[in-house]
């Protein structure tokens, strides 16, 4: 059987000529159905480019991405994306945002059925009380939940989470992490999480894969995470293995980071500036 999602030798660069930047180079990855994958990396290493490629928002220069053996071309509702900055439509209510997606993906659904469908997914993210609120009335964490509900309500094959929690405060992030894990177990979807937080990756994923920093970013060594599910932050934090895993991944990333800063070294020549004293005003005769 072919793998669920397969990324084969994908490369992507932006710009032309001397300003051409190769962001991703030779990305290879296989994801099984129902798996939770976390990709961790520094900011600017090309994580968002990778997820945009899978979402189909941009096309790879080389290589191909296969979902269930079929080549991906263009975006589609079979890959639900949760963007970093929520991207809720501000003129629609919570239910309106989810409903719009459902209406587009299941055009044949009857209006009563659709209403129930929307309500079910909003309940899944614990937002039933905010059903008719506008996005501007919600906190960042609540908005991101709506975004998750919208992605899930489309009943996608795979859920792509692009740093969904990085804009939130630490406490909200902690509680949403637990919720994402629960939603993943309940919905049995394949999830690909992009994050810059190693702990988050370890807490949630079956496998943590570091993205070597760009330009020409590639995926690094795969770290399998074998903690029992359902996971709980407190027990995992106390686990010896957690510290070991985290140290291993962190030192791996740090090693890569050193390499990056060494290769990017530029010497900036600062201009020599001496302060000029204001001249004495001369009387005009």
């Amino acid at each position: 059987m072919a793998a669920f999602l397969e990324i084969r030798n994908v490369s992507k660069s932006f710009g032309t000529g001397s300003s051409r930047v190769e962001v991703l180079k030779n990305i290879n990855l296989t994801i099984e159905e129902g798996e939770f994958i976390a990709i961790v990396g520094f900011t600017g290493s090309g994580k968002t480019t990778l997820i945009s490629l899978i979402a189909g928002l941009i096309e790879p220069d080389e290589g191909e991405i296969l979902l269930k053996g079929k080549r991906i071309s263009g975006p589609g509702p079979d890959r639900g994306v949760v963007f970093q900055n929520y991207s809720l439509l501000p003129w629609l209510s919570v239910a309106g945002n989810v409903n719009m997606a459902v209406k587009q993906v299941f055009p044949k659904m009857k209006s009563k059925e659709r209403k129930e469908h929307v309500a079910r997914y909003i309940e899944m993210v614990n937002l039933t009380s905010a059903l008719h609120k506008m996005p501007s009335e919600l906190s960042g964490g609540m908005r991101q939940r709506v975004s998750v509900a919208r992605a899930l309500a489309m009943d996608p094959e795979i859920l792509l989470l692009d740093e969904p929690l990085s804009a939130l405060d630490a406490l909200t992030r902690g509680s949403l992490q637990i919720e994402i894990e629960r939603i993943w177990r309940e919905s049995k979807k394949t999830v690909m999480l992009i994050t810059n937080d190693v702990d988050e990756g370890i807490l949630l994923a079956d496998r943590v894969i570091p993205l070597k920093p760009g330009p020409r970013a590639t995926l690094g060594t795969i770290f399998p995470i074998n903690f029992k599910r359902p996971r709980d932050k407190a027990t995992i934090n106390a686990d010896e293995n957690f510290k070991k895993e985290r140290n291993a991944i962190n030192s791996y990333l740090m090693e890569l980071g050193k390499f990056r800063s060494a290769s990017n070294k530029k010497v900036y020549h600062l201009p020599q500036i001496e302060p000029q004293l204001p001249r004495q005003k001369k009387a005009i005769v």
């Binding site: 928002l57 263009g74 994306v81 963007f83 991207s87 587009q104």
Partner: peptide
């Protein structure tokens, strides 16, 4: 129009 909204529209294939 905000690029995020356009991305939503693209993902939904409007």
């Amino acid at each position: 129009v905000d690029k995020d909204y356009l991305n939503v529209s693209k993902v939904l294939r409007l």
